[in-house]
């Protein structure tokens, strides 16, 4: 297990390094001269050159990449083109909100999606199964910003159950949690549908396996068979899916951040893209990639921890 953890960690680092390479290449391919935009139309060519030199943009690509890598390792993500504040500090302020939102979205989808999928599988072809099927597809099809807008209108504006905008008082955890409920729902609802369908499929597959029939033949209680004997196996592909899915969840969070006027990395990056604020874009995308690599890493480790065949085969 330890060796596996290290190997898996190495893979995660490799993924991040590759992502950084692509990121750097992508920045170079996007039209628009960063120096020109940063300094405005009246800047002289000399000023632009000086700016490029300061940002390291005149270096060969390989050198830029190596500098990028070493800077990241030392925690230096450059400075904001406009305010000159360190990007790492700025991201550090936004990141907790993004992570909290992702976890809230994940929480919604896991809490509703997994039991729903189990229930559908156990009562397959019942009217409840068919209804959840339709609802799930509905959840998947509705874009998260629509969910966000309607949730905002209904629960925050009309019913006033939850606060409408912002991230809540600093330091007041209860208030912050209340501010997470609706954005979390907006981000997670699509995943409720995905998970319900996915869990249903893998659950049905597992429920048809021999050892489940055997457990039934031994008279084990139905609940124990469903939620321990079957779910422990059926959850394995779901964990892998979630590991990859968190990436999508974080990018989907941008809409929720805008609608609910929440701080977050996604919103920061979108703003920075519009002004070609390279260090912020690169830092934001890089951190998102790291989160993605981290979540797949965690999901793989979790799956290995649950499945003794993997755990002991390592």
């Amino acid at each position: 297990m330890l060796l596996y953890t290290f190997r898996r960690l190495g893979l995660a680092v490799l993924i991040v390094c590759l992502a950084m390479l692509l990121l750097l290449a992508a920045i170079h391919m996007v039209p628009g001269d960063p120096a020109g935009i940063a300094l405005g139309p009246r800047a002289t060519p000399e000023m632009r050159e000086a700016f490029k030199a300061k940002m390291g943009l005149d270096q060969p690509f390989v050198v830029q990449y190596v500098n990028f890598l070493t800077n990241v390792v030392t925690g230096d993500l450059g400075v904001d083109v406009w305010s000159n504040r360190p990007v790492s500090t700025m991201i550090g302020e936004q990141l907790p909100h993004t992570i909290a939102l992702a976890i809230a979205g994940l929480g919604w989808s896991i809490m509703i999606g997994i039991p729903l999928g189990c229930f559908s599988a156990v009562h397959r072809n019942s009217w409840i199964d068919k209804l959840t099927g339709v609802l799930s597809v509905g959840c998947i099809a509705i874009p998260s910003f629509i969910v966000g807008l309607y949730a905002l209108l209904l629960f925050a504006v009309n019913l006033r159950w939850f606060p409408a905008i912002g991230a809540g008082e600093n330091g007041d955890l209860g208030d912050q949690a209340m501010h997470l409920v609706l954005p979390g729902l907006a981000v997670g609802l699509g995943w409720v549908g995905y998970l319900a369908r996915f869990v249903r499929t893998s659950m049905l597959e597992v429920l048809g396996e021999n050892h489940i029939r055997m457990a039934r033949a031994y008279g084990l209680p139905r609940r124990r068979i469903t939620y321990v004997y079957a779910l422990k196996l059926a959850i394995l592909p779901t964990i892998a899916l979630l590991g990859v899915g968190v990436g999508g969840l974080i990018s989907g969070a941008v809409f929720a951040e805008i609608i609910f006027a929440r701080p977050g990395v996604g919103k920061m990056v979108v703003d920075a893209v519009n002004t070609r604020n390279y260090p912020i874009v690169m830092g934001g995308v890089l951190v998102t990639t790291m989160l993605f690599a981290l979540s797949t890493l965690l999901s793989d480790l979790l799956a290995a921890w649950i499945d003794p065949r993997v755990r002991q085969g390592l």
Binding site: N210, H211, Y229
Partner: peptide, 20 residues
């Protein structure tokens, strides 16, 4: 089941739960 009547199945490779 299991208490008054019990059963042994054909294929021992698939009859036991692999993760328990």
């Amino acid at each position: 089941r299991g208490q008054r009547i019990s059963m042994v199945f054909q294929d021992p490779m698939t009859a036991l739960n692999p993760v328990i």
